[in-house]
Amino acid sequence: MRCATVNHVIEVNGLTKRYGAVTAVRDLTFAVRPGHVTGFLGPNGAGKSTTLRMILGLNRPTAGGATIDGRSFARHRAGLRHVGALLDAGDVHGGRTAAAHLYALARGNGLPRRRVADVLEEVGLAGVARRRIGGFSLGMRQRLGIAAALLGDPPVLLFDEPVNGLDPEGVRWIRGLFRRLAAEGRTVLVSSHLMSEMENTADHLVVIGRGELIAAESLAVFAARGTGASVSVRTPDSAELAAVLALEGAHVRPDGGDVLTVTGLGAARIGELAHQRRIMLHELAPRTASLEQAFMELTADRADYRADCRADVRVGDAR
């Protein structure tokens, strides 16, 4: 099996794509390293697909470029042996059978026919190999696209929104697959518009919004960029507790009824303070959604974002 080396790096350098007056991707620079699952995050329309297509040479950049193994992808002859990609599960001809579709791809890359059976087995489509793709569900097409990406046993894999259309079992399977591929030392880049999808899968994140880089760092560092963890407190004496916590320097926001959302203090400290003042608590729950929150804040409209975000979550020092 391959080992993690400095090879198989995806490098994106000043990548820019303009369609007339619209700039889809602006001066994007980041690197994706082997041995990790890297999440490629951004809201819909952020330019994720355009970036992936430019990495694969399908779209021509207006400026800048991307390399894989130090070479532009268009210079690789047998693409599947270097990069496996699932861009859109719909990028198939519905009139062909799954086996014929994969066999044509395999033959074009000089890969032996048995790879077709191997990858169909791997993605769980062996039973429908002779069926035409036109009758496949979206989930089956996603699996077929993943099978195509795995055909050439490539060291670099790109997946654009691969979780769409998969059932819960499929989602669990695909997460395991990504982690296994990364553990084998491959470079795995997975795009998504949902932070929650990445939370349990990715080690690193590349976050873009409106075609610009917002962050390229480890998941842990990214999570710390959010407004921080908060604690949800439910108490019949919410007004009194709010005053106490505010005195301690916490930021307290009433969240309707007898619920307070507290930031700046840990759950333990809040419990201690309540105990000292003999305030009864019905609920004391740390909130762990800070990753999602960080993502939402960072990808919100840049004008809004500048208006109400703290200095330490600024763009620019991402690299």
Partner: peptide, 18 residues
Amino acid sequence: VGEYTTGLIRTTLAAVPA
């Protein structure tokens, strides 16, 4: 045309970039 209308062309050219 079949390659372009179905989107297969992207799969084809990602597999064989030349």
